[in-house]
């Protein structure tokens, strides 16, 4: 029952995140989606991932969205879509039916858990390359943000110099 309620809540929040006209409201609905996904992860037996999703997905990412919306300002987001909406709906339904056909038979062939090692051992032992990649990814993200959020100082300084020379 709790799974069902959480699922309905997740889909409702996701739809509202797309439908709402104000970007700030969309960001808050997205935070709600993240929080409910974290709850669903907890219910599925992955509390560590749930906690990380809650703190990163619902916390950090929401703060980033609010920060970015603050910088860019609210802009009318109810513009006419580039492709016709009915066409988009038909395309999505077709692809989801195909996805469902692929996914559903796998559910019945579930294998029992067989003496598996702990998450810590899997993460730091078996998937070392992933951890190194994650560290690299975080580093790239930080560099990217530093580069992108930088004001155009060199150009402005160059313009000032040329004005002084004149």
């Amino acid at each position: 029952m709790l799974h069902l309620l959480t699922g309905v809540g997740i889909l409702l929040c996701a739809v509202q995140a797309i439908r709402s006209r104000r970007l700030l409201v969309s960001a808050l609905w997205l935070a709600g989606t993240s929080a409910l996904v974290a709850l669903e992860l907890y219910l599925l037996g992955a509390p560590e991932i749930g906690v990380i999703e809650l703190s990163v997905g619902a916390g950090l990412v929401t703060v980033l969205f609010v920060f970015a919306i603050n910088l860019t300002g609210e802009e009318a987001s109810d513009l006419k879509s580039l492709i016709r909406k009915p066409l988009a709906v038909v395309f999505i339904v077709l692809s989801l039916v195909l996805l469902g056909i692929l996914l559903v038979p796998g559910v019945d062939r579930a294998a029992p858990s067989a003496g598996e090692s702990a998450l810590k051992a899997v993460l730091w032992g078996d998937r070392q390359l992933d951890v190194i990649l994650q560290a690299g990814l975080v580093f790239c993200g930080v560099l990217g943000v530093l580069g992108l959020l930088r004001e155009r100082e060199p150009e402005a300084a160059g313009e000032k110099k040329s004005e002084e020379q004149q």
Binding site: G106, A118, L119, L123
Partner: peptide, 15 residues
Amino acid sequence: RLQGKENLGQSLALM
């Protein structure tokens, strides 16, 4: 969870 490799799925989810 379905494949009996919960921690593998979770470590990938973390990534």
